[in-house]
């Protein structure tokens, strides 16, 4: 196993209105090259902070004590080129007043040193790869003319435009219906396999994380609770917190919460 990124004793503290929030405490974790790793855990547990720290995108007034090595890369990663980032809200990463073809071409031009015509050809190819219908006219479309699922495909196309080693998806499918969500998950899985990318998939949907990832890391209160192969985490969680998370999942076969006698007839 080649280690892409080796994280040792990562501690992140945010500063806000004079107070300090310890968002991550002494996290140590190796990300294997080519693996699909999911991060799950309750809201505020530090999942996004971990992603931002790895991508070097933490906001300025934060203190970061970190030791991340990139043996799988051999150098310090460059955001946008070596690491692609997809957020929950695609509108957050797309410029509303720029045609989407130009946005994707821009990434390819900046990081791959392509000419504009080459970059546009690459953008069209990427829109085909993410299976956007009618890529020629989509190149000229603005974000508001696309549906939520289509926008997320464009955001993924932009994230992988420079051929990153690591793709980070932070709640990238949470706002989508199950059909579009399944399409996006299939798309991510295919792209990661085709390009040999490593995937960091952040979600609070345990069922979705388990379907996609080979390993799952569970976070709580800024700490890594446990990390293991997906089947082991799901079937034999070592920590009570992981078990509680699994039990709180409301699946399609869950016992209804509804007491039917509660309905006035």
């Amino acid at each position: 196993m080649t280690v892409l990124a080796s994280i040792r004793d990562l501690t992140v503290t945010y500063r806000r209105d004079g107070t300090e929030v310890a968002a991550l405490k002494n996290i140590s974790l190796d990300i294997a090259a080519g693996e699909r790793l999911a991060i799950i855990g309750e809201s505020g547990s530090g999942k996004s902070t971990l992603a931002l720290a790895i991508a070097g995108l933490l906001p300025a007034p934060s203190r970061i004590d970190v030791w991340i090595e990139w043996p799988g890369l051999g150098r310090v990663p460059l955001g946008g080129r070596d690491i692609g980032f997809v957020f929950q809200d695609p509108s957050a990463s797309l410029d509303p007043v720029m045609p989407i073809g130009q946005q994707i071409a821009e990434v390819a031009r900046t990081h791959l040193g392509l000419t504009w015509p080459q970059a546009y050809a690459k953008a069209k190819n990427l829109l085909e790869r993410v299976r956007l219908p009618d890529p020629d006219s989509a190149l000229l479309a603005f974000p508001h003319q696309l549906s939520g699922g289509q926008k997320q495909r464009v955001a993924i196309a932009a994230a992988i435009a420079a051929g990153p080693k690591l793709l980070i998806a932070d709640e990238a499918t949470s706002a989508l219906d199950t059909i579009v969500q399944a399409e996006i998950v299939t798309l991510i899985r295919r792209l990661v396999a085709e390009d040999g990318m490593t995937l960091l998939f952040i979600s609070h949907d345990i069922a979705l994380a388990a379907e996609l990832a080979e390993r799952i890391a569970v976070f709580r209160h800024g700490q890594l609770v446990e990390l293991g192969a997906t089947a082991r985490i799901v079937d034999a969680p070592a920590q009570p917190y992981t078990r509680a998370l699994l039990d709180a999942h409301i699946g399609l076969d869950a016992e209804p919460l509804l007491n039917r006698s509660g309905l006035a007839t």
Binding site: T178, Q181, A182, I206, A207, L208, A210, V234, D235
Partner: peptide
């Protein structure tokens, strides 16, 4: 609600259900 979601009859109901992620636990 349970009847429809357990056995949808419409095409869209079937598609939504087929795409929903499922958690397979052998030892719940």
């Amino acid at each position: 609600a349970r009847a429809v979601i357990d056995a949808p009859r419409s095409a869209i109901g079937k598609a939504l259900l087929a795409a929903a992620p499922r958690l397979h636990r052998t030892r719940p």
